[in-house]
């Protein structure tokens, strides 16, 4: 298949068997979308459908098209050709290999012609260390990484080693990583990013929100002008909270006027 330009999700049915109100979602390269909805509404199922290139063979009966066509089988059968990277909520690694060895194993699997695994490993570590305050070293065992380090490494792995045109992130906010930096770095890539999120900051920085309830995509909301303006304030508010969190984390006492002037 030639260059990937778009991904399409054809609606199926919800948990109750009712058809989805949104029959078709088209995402173009460069789009950032958020999946929003209550816990248990089917957000993870939605991105799992995408990741598995659902073809009426999952309980939701959704279908996923790439460039408007049914994707070739090799996307699923050959990891080096899979255009989708998924970062799941599972932030624990089972492998106790040192980070360097693990990345090498994965880079070898993913290595497209012309890419050198050593170079990929180096860039992955650099990327990860831009996202987390606690630097990740090549000799640390995967199982010894903290939640934040693991999440940072997974995002870096998906971006640098997988380097797929479509990246799915399931609740990235759960980990101790720098989200501002993360979104900034990710936005530079010409990819489709789909975030499952409860985080107002990520939701408002997306191009649109896919609203899910009871296993069905109910509607698509484009981020409007007012929301874009609001997004800046939300980010500032979020930064204030992040700073407070950092201070608490390093054992500082807070003064009573920490929030003064920030809520205007």
């Amino acid at each position: 298949m030639s260059e990937i330009e778009s991904i399409t999700i054809i609606g199926g049915r919800g948990k109750d068997g009712e058809p989805e109100p949104v029959e078709r979602i088209d995402l173009q390269m460069g789009n950032v979308a958020s999946i929003v909805g209550p816990t248990g509404s089917g957000k993870t199922t939605f991105i799992n459908d995408i990741e598995m290139f659902a073809d009426c063979d999952t309980p939701s009966m959704r279908r996923v098209l790439i460039n408007g066509e049914r994707p070739p089988r090799e996307f699923r059968n050959d990891p080096s050709k899979n255009p989708i990277a998924l970062i799941t909520q599972h932030t624990t690694f089972l492998s106790d290999l040192p980070v360097g060895e693990f990345l090498e194993a994965h880079a070898t699997v993913r290595a497209a012609s012309g890419k050198h695994p050593d170079d990929m490993i180096e860039r992955t570590i650099e990327f990860a260390n831009e996202l987390t305050g606690e630097p990740v070293g090549l000799d640390v065992r995967m199982t010894e990484l903290s939640g934040g380090q693991t999440r940072a490494l997974l995002i870096a792995d998906a971006t640098v080693i997988c380097d797929t045109p479509i990246v799915l992130l399931d609740e990235v906010e759960n980990a101790g990583i720098d989200r501002t930096r993360c979104l900034e770095l990710l936005r530079r890539q010409r990819k489709v990013f789909i975030f499952v999120t409860h985080d107002p900051r990520i939701a408002l920085l997306s191009d649109f929100r896919i609203v899910i309830a009871e296993g069905r995509v109910m509607k698509i909301l484009g981020t409007n002008e007012a929301e874009r303006e609001l997004a800046t304030k939300v980010s500032r508010l979020d930064d204030v909270l992040s700073r407070l969190r950092d201070k608490l984390r390093v054992g500082q006492a807070l003064s009573g006027n920490e929030l003064e002037g920030t809520l205007a």
Partner: peptide, 14 residues
Amino acid sequence: GDLVSQAEREVFRA
């Protein structure tokens, strides 16, 4: 496969 990271799944598969 839904219980491990994609990276691990791909290495397992390889």
